[in-house]
């Protein structure tokens, strides 16, 4: 099981070199949302579930930017490695299998998810929007959504005929997850069927855990359920990309 780590070393070599430019770029968009919505909309919304609007959305922005980090890495990033740079073909000349390549992709997406989640967490902490030191558990928790979102994205990457197809993935799939994931408003205001549907939205689980930890009000059994959701989801998503990527790389 050491092979995926060896492949990951390649990704991390590059990541470490571009860390600062990468981080600045990834930090900017969530920061815009946070200020625009938090201060702009927050001026009109007095309270949300008993806390200030800024406090309400801040942990959700952590969860969603973590999702975007994993998603972009395992869609555009993976596709460039697969299709344009033929990195996977080159790696396959070494003593590794397609499974190792997929696991390395998922680990890389997960690391980006955790790192960028942690960066935004730091930002909201500096802005005074974190109430509890339990928030320190958030980066640890983000490992799970990180793996899940990466595996989901890389599965789509295996099927994408060209790079334009990622527009569909982002616009038709990830953006709805973001808007209806409980980041900006509680899903309890929605019709019952929509609330039930939200259970299938991975981001909603991540947002709830991040918010509970940031506010220091975790209901541990509920958190356990969310964690279990990601465990089972990631386990189910491991086999499909391995199978699909093998079909794509090996004739």
């Amino acid at each position: 099981m050491i092979e995926p780590w060896r492949i990951l070393r390649r990704h991390l070599t590059i990541f470490s070199r571009t860390f600062w430019t990468n981080t600045m770029f990834n930090f900017f968009e969530p920061f815009l949302y946070l200020t625009a919505m938090g201060y702009g909309l927050g001026a009109f919304v007095q309270e949300m579930e008993g806390i200030s609007y800024m406090e309400y959305i801040a942990p959700g922005i952590v969860a969603s930017s973590a999702m975007f980090a994993a998603t972009f890495e395992c869609t555009y990033g993976s596709f460039v490695r697969l299709h344009y740079q033929k990195t996977f073909h080159a790696i396959l000349a070494g003593p590794v299998t397609v499974r190792d390549i997929i696991i390395a992709e998922a680990l890389f997406g997960m690391i980006k998810c955790v790192v960028f989640g942690a960066v935004i967490l730091l930002v909201i902490a500096v802005m005074g929007q974190v109430r509890s030191s339990l928030a320190l558990l958030i980066p640890l928790f983000l490992i799970l959504p990180g793996l899940f979102f990466s595996l989901m994205a890389v599965t789509y990457t295996c099927l994408a005929p060209n790079i334009d197809y990622f527009n569909y993935y982002i616009t038709l799939f990830v953006t709805p997850l973001y808007l209806f994931g409980g980041v900006f408003f509680p899903l309890t205001g929605m019709p019952v069927w929509a609330q039930k549907l939200a259970w299938f939205n991975p981001l909603s689980h991540s947002v709830e855990v991040c918010r509970a930890l940031a506010l220091g009000q975790p209901a541990w059994p509920t958190i356990g359920e969310h964690v279990l959701w990601f465990f089972i989801g990631s386990a189910l998503l491991l086999a499909p990309p391995i199978h699909l990527m093998r079909r794509r790389l090996i004739q």
């Binding site: 390649r10 070599t13 590059i14 740079q85 033929k86 990195t87 073909h89 080159a90 000349a93």
Partner: peptide, 13 residues
């Protein structure tokens, strides 16, 4: 040792 037809060097490295 494999030398493929196409130079698949890693441009990021």
């Amino acid at each position: 040792g494999v030398v493929p037809q196409e130079d698949n060097l890693d441009p990021d490295l």
